[in-house]
């Protein structure tokens, strides 16, 4: 399935490369888009972006691991009742402490 789907993509790109018009673009045509101005800076020339994205990615890793721990628990839950319930509560409680800390630190405020 993966092979076929990737194959479709490759075939499409190849077909377009073969069938499309092959002109050498002028310098201005191949310039990066910047609302009609000459582009300033570019990739790797010290372009900065907000640290928020980094924080969100970190939080995602933490909470996604939480989710990963939760899946086996959820699937086996009915066999582990009622002990599993208190386990789950404890685990979520610990994570909630971290979550509240994040909220208080205003990590999730974008301004």
């Amino acid at each position: 399935m993966l092979l076929v789907s990737l194959g479709i993509g490759i075939v499409a790109v190849l077909a377009s490369a073969l069938l499309g018009p092959k002109r050498r673009g002028s310098r201005t045509k191949l310039m990066a888009y910047e609302s009609g101005n000459d582009p300033e800076g570019g990739v790797g020339t010290g372009q900065r972006f907000p640290v928020h994205f980094y924080l969100v990615a970190m939080l995602f890793i933490i909470f996604d691991i939480e989710t990963a721990f939760f899946y086996p628990l959820a699937v086996a839950y009915q066999k582990l009742i009622p002990f599993a319930f208190f386990e789950a509560i404890t685990f979520v409680g610990l994570l909630l402490v971290g979550y509240v800390y994040i909220l208080k630190k205003r990590v999730l405020e974008w301004n």
């Binding site: 377009s16 045509k29 191949l30 310039m31 990066a32």
Partner: peptide
């Protein structure tokens, strides 16, 4: 149309 269009490769692109 999208197959027969010109496939641009921008100068700065990887």
């Amino acid at each position: 149309k999208s197959i027969f269009k010109e496939d641009l490769n921008v100068t700065l692109a990887d």
